[in-house]
């Protein structure tokens, strides 16, 4: 019964045995001294002579560094990025969410000569404990106020902590993914290195010049 097939199979497994692994050690990985020096941008000899104890520990495999998982730019992560300044409380996102987990309460926010009557957000809660990260809310937002985030390591002990409120959204890191936001891809924005501080940068249009604004709102009227 034993013929050519089985040795041929063993050759393939042997070849695969010597391949470099495709898996990643997560969340921490052990590094060699050489790699450690490269990560911290240090000369390997300098590192060895300045911190001999540390170098020995690294060589023995006692020190580990956080490993990075390769993600694509469009990754739909769980930390939503939200720019309150851009939001008009239109509630398109809440209507489009298949699970109905976005709660919005808006109050009249006064009158502005440029923008007309506006509404202000009172409550903006997303219950990400039930969210499936489909991104439909982001797709529905017409003013680029809500974006998917790129982080995925958000875990809590209490389920109620998973309800992200307006305040939590304001504090969170503004590193939006380019899911349904082609402007980030066009600008070559890298959410894993940069973050966006100015809410004007998150829009699909450039911030208008002062002259243009004056022409539109004052001169042409």
């Amino acid at each position: 019964m034993i013929g050519k097939g089985i040795p041929r199979g063993f050759i393939i497994t042997l070849k695969n045995f010597f391949r470099s692994p495709v898996t990643v050690q997560y969340p921490d990985r052990k590094v060699s001294l050489f790699e450690y020096a490269k990560i911290h941008n240090k000369n390997i000899f300098k590192l060895f002579f300045s911190q001999p104890m540390l170098s020995i520990k690294i060589s023995l495999g006692l020190i580990s560094v956080p490993s990075s998982v390769e993600q694509s730019q469009r990754f739909r992560g769980n930390e939503f990025t939200f720019f309150e300044e851009r939001c008009t409380a239109c509630a398109s996102c809440a209507k489009y969410c298949p699970l109905g987990i976005i709660e919005i309460v808006s109050v009249p926010g006064g009158f502005d000569a440029q923008e007309g009557e506006s509404y202000k957000l009172d409550v903006f809660d997303i219950d990400i404990g039930r969210c499936m990260f489909c991104g439909l809310c982001v797709e529905a937002c017409p003013y680029d106020a809500l974006h998917m985030g790129t982080k995925f390591e958000k875990s809590t002990y209490v389920r109620d902590d998973l309800i992200i409120t307006k305040e939590k959204l304001a504090e969170s890191e503004k590193s939006p993914s380019s899911f349904y936001r082609p402007q980030f891809e066009k600008k070559k924005f890298d959410p894993f290195k940069d973050n966006i501080k100015d809410h004007y940068k998150a829009g699909r249009h450039e911030k208008p010049e002062y002259k243009e604004l004056k022409k539109k709102w004052v001169d042409d009227r």
């Binding site: 730019q73 990260f133 891809e185």
Partner: peptide, 23 residues
């Protein structure tokens, strides 16, 4: 993941095409 940001629960297609061009 490059196309639509998710690996398994894609939701990439929409009636009439796809939601976003490939990067």
């Amino acid at each position: 993941e490059m196309l639509c940001g998710a690996r398994i629960t894609n939701s990439y297609l929409r009636p009439g095409g796809v939601f976003m061009d490939a990067p």
